[in-house]
Design a protein around this nucleic acid. Sequence first.
DNA 1: ATGTCTTTGTGAACGCGTGCACAAAGATGG
DNA 2: CCATCTTTGTGCACGCGTTCACAAAGACAT
Lengths: 251, 251
Amino acid sequence: MATGRTHRPATRSRGIPEATVARLPLYLRALTALSERSVPTVSSEELAAAAGVNSAKLRKDFSYLGSYGTRGVGYDVEYLVYQISRELGLTQDWPVVIVGIGNLGAALANYGGFASRGFRVAALIDADPAMAGKPVAGIPVQHSDQLEKIIEDNGVSIGVIATPAGAAQPVCDRLVAAGITSILNFAPTVLSVPDGVDVRKVDLSIELQILAFHEQRKAGEGAAADAGAVPLAPKASRKGPDGDVPAVMPA
Amino acid sequence: MATGRTHRPATRSRGIPEATVARLPLYLRALTALSERSVPTVSSEELAAAAGVNSAKLRKDFSYLGSYGTRGVGYDVEYLVYQISRELGLTQDWPVVIVGIGNLGAALANYGGFASRGFRVAALIDADPAMAGKPVAGIPVQHSDQLEKIIEDNGVSIGVIATPAGAAQPVCDRLVAAGITSILNFAPTVLSVPDGVDVRKVDLSIELQILAFHEQRKAGEGAAADAGAVPLAPKASRKGPDGDVPAVMPA
DNA sequence: ATGTCTTTGTGAACGCGTGCACAAAGATGG
DNA sequence: CCATCTTTGTGCACGCGTTCACAAAGACAT
């Protein structure tokens, strides 16, 4: 997947491992699809296939939530949907602000996956005065002057940053100061936040780079000889460290 | 972070752990910033801070690539940029197609982070005939009829799927059949692909759900009593499994 | 009621990733 | 040339996550 874990060092919250929490939305999505097809029960094997994971892993994940299955039968779909939703906190209403209404911000505002999961876009915020008042996804964009007021008035605790990299940290600081305690960051920067604030990041180009790495390997090491200009090595003579191209090392 | 690992069971490619590969783009970004400020060398401590990781982890990561540092001094910025770029395969040109030019697809097409890393948007593809010919980010959208031809003519091996969930698997199948071997999937679906094809997924709503989970915990378990309608438990009487709300279990 | 069959829930083993802590390496100054 | 000081590279131990494999539990048929 594209996103990575972030700063929290695998803290297991009330006994539920981080890795499990990260998979719960996956199960929930698969279960919702089954629910819409009015499937009453599902076995761990079937559900695991639908979610793209191992069935043993799925059973262990569910075991952290409690004993919600029936042996010999499987899991009750509706019941499980409710339990996971509750565990994830999706039975609550989560107002969210999106800061930075460029192409990505607009795409996020229009994204249907939020509303269907209890997330409500409370406000769109942008630093460009020309954007102010212009409706995006049916919601008028507000100027960033209003940021603190918007967050306090709506009791927002989750913020989405979709600004350019340079603006991200200042925006982040203001969000945190205004009371935001969870941030989803799309800007390609490392955000520094005080303890108690969660940050998750999504970096589109990082994902592509990881794919490129594997793609390069699949293409075979043989064809890797591009004779382009090569920066000089620092100083000392370098021995090619296993698999390096000798020409890269000008001594 | 937002993305997750995907199907590949932590295969370590030529001795470089997956976890390390996932961090290389992070280091590269930090190094590029230093390079632009003409910083000649950097210590593991400084670079680790800039990348938001532990310095021991960074040194261990680099040790998988080779011995590229100088003790007592640190790492040569330019040299390291080149080595990591080469390791990630970014010294090559990677043509990429984006399928599904909605809000998100358009945002991706406009995203600057791709071009600056050796990725070239070779084509934009959409199923809507009305989109055909319309330029997005300076590139004319082509109809999906042309998909196979585009991929073959341009030697594309990386595809980005930004379609609605329902269209994702058929598109994926066509991409794979046409020769694509790496896919970045933004559609909220599990894609099934043959062996040898890498899939990474980015799911925006999953990230928010994970944040909501932690947010709920931060808010304290005390206030968790929402007395909404609760689906019935399957059949048998259920004992509340440690921390559950008794009222949820109607026997 | 009893037996069979399916499927869950979990104990245990294994492997990967992380972080500590230190020895080796080299730069720098006298 | 030697001493000192900084910073790398890594051996080691620990903990989390994954997977296997199986006993326990319940449904269902007879």
